[in-house]
Each structure stands twice: as structure tokens, then as C-alpha cells.
Amino acid sequence: MSNSQHPLEIEYGLSALELLDALQARFRARVTLEGAVAEVQLTAHLTRLQYEGGIARFESHDEDGKHDFTLHLPEDKNIVRIECKNVRNSKRLQVEIQKTRASKNDPSSRYYDASHFEIIAVCLGKKTRNWKQFFFASAADLSHHKEYPEKLAVMHSLPASGNADNEIWFSDLRTLLRKKFPAS
């Protein structure tokens, strides 16, 4: 085991344990951390899918206003954009699909345009404690906002069982890609 410090330990003058304790003690920091964990777990999932030939390649994006991942399907010139979210921490199994902030001049800007991404990936870790488990859905199958029909609704119910695979939600991304995005 190396005695070298992580760059964050050096930057903040805290040990790794102190940094983890700070994250654990602060709600907003935990929410941010859980979002990062979901994206890292989805990256691992996409890496396996690429290795198995389910996708040609992918990129991840950490930019405001941009989707989280871009997939390139095998033998297909089209791309599939993915937005990654965590399941809500509530009694019902559901996902909240909206941005963190809205523009002061546009109250609808907090809601996602229906064309912003093709797939929503929902990490179930908050509920199942298995941060590798996801549900996937095509944005085309999600309900729209009542006041802004070009936007997606905020709340979406997820299947109660650990295995989705119905007409909207899928527990396997490859199955969703085959059914909803067949190679042209």
C-alpha cells in the first residue's frame, strides 16, 4: 500500500477519512456524491457493454446543459444520448427527472426537453443498496409535463420489482437498445 496522498487530501489539507466524514455529515454533499457514484457505476456498465459488443463506444460528459453519456451503436451511424439519475428516497419507487436549477427568465427551463436525451438510466442504489443496479427507459416512452408538453414530466413511477423488463422500463440496457433502437 502506498503512503502517497490523494490530490484532494493535499488540496484541502484533510485526510481521506476526514474528507469522507465531511461528505457523510452533509446532506447536499451526499446528494452530489450519490450522483457521481451513479455515473461511475453507469460508466462501468457501459464499459462492460462495449467489451461485449453491445455498443461500439461511448463518451461521458460533465458539462452543464449536456446529457451525461453518448453511446455509439455497432454498425449504426446514429448516437444515443443517456441522462443518469438516482431513484428518489421516498416510499414509492420513482425517479425525479428535472434539472437542479431553473433560469430566472424561463420557469420551464428546469424541466428536460423531450429531445434532450434518448434514454434515462436510473440507479437503484438508494433503495436496493446495490449501486450497480439500474432501470433504463426510452425518453419517447416517458410522460410529458402537463403545462409544458414539449418537456418531460418531473415524476415517473418505476416498477416495484427488481426486474423491470416491461414496455417502458428495462433492467438490461442491451434489451432496451435492441427493442427501441434497432440498427438501421
Rank of each mutant, 00 (worst) to 15 (best):
Val87Pro: 06
Val87Tyr: 07
Arg88Pro: 10
Arg88Val: 06
Arg88Ala: 11
Ser90Glu: 09
Ser90Gly: 06
Arg92Trp: 04
Arg92Val: 08
Leu93Asn: 07
Leu93Ile: 06
Leu93Lys: 12
Gln94Gly: 00
Gln94Lys: 10
Gln94Asp: 12
Val95Pro: 02
Glu96Phe: 11
Glu96Met: 11
Ile97Lys: 07
Ile97Trp: 12
Gln98Asp: 03
Lys99Asp: 03
Thr100Gln: 13
Arg101Ser: 15
Ala102Trp: 05
Ser103Met: 01
Asn105Leu: 13
Asn105Met: 11
Ser108Cys: 05
Ser108Val: 08
Ser109Asn: 12
Ser109Trp: 12
Tyr111Gln: 10
Tyr112Arg: 08
Tyr112Asn: 13
Asp113Phe: 14
Asp113Arg: 15
Phe117Asp: 01
Glu118Gly: 06
Ile119Glu: 03
Ile119Ser: 04
Ile119Pro: 00
Ala121Asn: 13
Ala121Trp: 13
Ala121Asp: 02
Ala121His: 02
Val122Lys: 12
Val122Gln: 11
Val122Ala: 01
Cys123Ile: 08
Lys126His: 11
Lys126Asn: 03
Lys126Glu: 09
Lys126Val: 03
Lys127Glu: 11
Arg129Trp: 13
Arg129Cys: 12
Trp131Phe: 10
Trp131Glu: 05
Trp131Gly: 01
Gln133His: 14
Gln133Val: 00
Phe134Thr: 06
Ala137Phe: 01
Ala137Cys: 02
Ser138Val: 00
Ala140Met: 00
Ala140His: 05
Asp141Phe: 05
Leu142Arg: 02
Ser143Ala: 11
His145Asn: 15
His145Ile: 13
His145Pro: 15
Lys146Gln: 14
Lys146Phe: 10
Tyr148Gly: 00
Tyr148Leu: 00
Pro149Tyr: 09
Pro149Arg: 13
Glu150Trp: 12
Glu150Arg: 09
Lys151Ile: 10
Leu152Phe: 09
Ala153Gln: 14
Ala153Met: 13
Val154Pro: 02
Met155Cys: 04
His156Val: 02
His156Gly: 01
His156Thr: 05
His156Ile: 00
Ser157Tyr: 09
Ser157Asp: 13
Ser157Ala: 11
Ser157Cys: 04
Leu158Ala: 05
Ala160Glu: 13
Ser161Asp: 14
Ala164Leu: 05
Ala164His: 12
Asp165His: 10
Asn166Leu: 02
Asn166Ser: 11
Glu167Cys: 06
Phe170Asn: 07
Ser171Cys: 01
Asp172Met: 07
Asp172Tyr: 02
Arg174Asn: 15
Arg174His: 15
Thr175Glu: 07
Leu176Pro: 06
Arg178Val: 09
Arg178Gly: 00
Lys179Ser: 11
Lys180Cys: 06
